[in-house]
Structures are given as C-alpha cells and as structure tokens.
Design a protein around this nucleic acid. Sequence first.
DNA 1: CGAAAAAATGCAATTTAATTGCATTTTTTA
DNA 2: TAAAAAATGCAATTAAATTGCATTTTTTCG
Lengths: 143, 143
Amino acid sequence: MGNNNLCSTHILRQAKISNTKVRKSILEFLMKNHGPFSIDEIHEKISTCDSTTVYRCIKKFEKCKIVERCDFGDNISRYEYKCSEHHHHIMCRNCNRIDTVKYCFVKEMEKVLIQQGYKEVSHKLEFFGICQDCQNSNTNSEN
Amino acid sequence: MGNNNLCSTHILRQAKISNTKVRKSILEFLMKNHGPFSIDEIHEKISTCDSTTVYRCIKKFEKCKIVERCDFGDNISRYEYKCSEHHHHIMCRNCNRIDTVKYCFVKEMEKVLIQQGYKEVSHKLEFFGICQDCQNSNTNSEN
DNA sequence: CGAAAAAATGCAATTTAATTGCATTTTTTA
DNA sequence: TAAAAAATGCAATTAAATTGCATTTTTTCG
C-alpha cells in the first residue's frame, strides 16, 4: 500500500486514536478530495461500513481537529479535512455546489466572488468563544 | 393596543401576508427582544399556539425577509428580527449565550471580541450565491 | 508472540428538529 | 356578509444524529 496509507496511519497515530480500517478509508477519502462532505456522501464512498460508524469516526476526527465541520444552514453538517491554508466556502443557493474561497476579508471576498461569476452573493458569519461568565465560574459543559 | 401592535400589523401588511394573532405575537416578541431565538424559545413565549405553527410562521417570515436564520452548528436554527443595522453574533462555546457583534472585518472583529473579554475566539464564515451553471441553465430549485 | 484490556463496529432502537396531510378555524376578498 | 383563500391544530411522518449492547478488532503489556 502506498504513501497515502502511510500518511493517514501517521495522522491517526499522532492523534492518539486507534488505527482502524474504516478510519483509514474515511481519512484517505477526505485527504484525497476537496470540499466539505456530508456523512451520507462519505458513507457512500466508504461503502464497507455502517453509517453510524461514519458518524462516530467523524465525531472523533472533529474532536482531534483532523476535520472541521461546516454549516450551510440546510441542517446537514459537512466535514472537511483540516488542511494547512485558511479558507472559506461558497455554496450555490440553487444547486448546493460548494466551491473554495481563498481570500479573507468579507466585503473584498464578496467582490471577488462576483468577479468569479457568482450572483446574489451573501454570507453568514458567526463567532464562537468562551464568555467571561464561563471563564469565572469553572463549569465546563464539554465532555 | 399600543404602538408595537400597529407596527407589527404594518409589517405584515407590507409583506402581503395574513395578519393573524399568532403572527403578530411572534413578530412582536422578536421585535421587542434582541438576539436570535430557536423555535422552542419562541414557542415557549407564544404559549397560545402549536409549535408547528411557529415553524410555519417563521418560515413565512424568513421568505418575506422579516427574519433571518442563524446557524451556530448545533443543529438548532435560530431566528432574529431583521433590523436595520448589519451585525454578527458570538456564541459562548460553553454556555451557548449569544451576544451581538457590531463590527465587520473578520480579524479586526476577533481582536475586539478578545478585548471585550472573550477567549478562544474563532469564527465560521460561509458564502452563498448563484453559480454560473445555475445562471445559464434556468433550473431553479426554489419554491 | 499471545492473552487480557480497551476501543471500535454493526445493528436495532431511540431522540429530536423539522415537515406534511388533513379537517377545522380564521382572515381576506369583493 | 358570503365565498374564497389562507392559517392553524393535531397527528403522523421524515431524516439527521445519537445511544445501547453484543460482537469484533485493535492495542497494550507481560
């Protein structure tokens, strides 16, 4: 088996999680292919395992920061291999096609997207952090 | 009944949708209170109607651009009255408290949030538009 | 290496946000 | 004010995601 196998194995080892056949398949699929994928899309490619297992693997990957979740507001979570360069996405409101956006200042980015041929461009931006109340009280709801 | 009632009635009329008791209650609640709310939260306040009706009203409001949907990646849609000034949100990763963010350049904004006392600040930014394929073919999946 | 411990998997069942169908009620039209 | 159109309540359904548990695979460590 080739380089990719070694690579995925290495990543799993480094994350200190079990190096199973299913995890390797999922990780290799995500590493070889661009763009965020839904659980269903991943499951279709990794046809050898149950979809529950995909859910569990991806959840583990997310916790280990191997993948990142993207939300496009259609109640379907999509996941992407967390590669080096910071980027965003654009989804067509009509066909749901997802493209990569490499620029990073909101208004500027929208202009570039319009130049690229997209129309009716808008964006969703949400922030996450730990608020002061939570910093003071030590209650932490993460498991 | 006071000014708020007139106001919500006017908005519904302007949107050319029926001016019902339930819709007025929901709209007035959203107009009086800041921050995006889940269907459950709205339903608890508008205790006189079925939750299905809240879903349907909010969907209608969204279509008429009276409210805007926010996604924080927890599989719960939240809705906010679409007031004049452009802004974003920050949700505490621990307690899910949601605050308003009035600034608008990503990295700058993160700095301001950190100055405001938030820690471990990150953001999610997704774009939406109509891609060239969809502009060319006239298939439109919206109903 | 090989047995014990730990972790992952498959399958079935469950949870929960959201949607749909349909009879009834309310609102709008004219 | 009567007819038409739209909204509502309730029950049932859909679909993404989660959980429990028996079985299998992987890891640990003597």
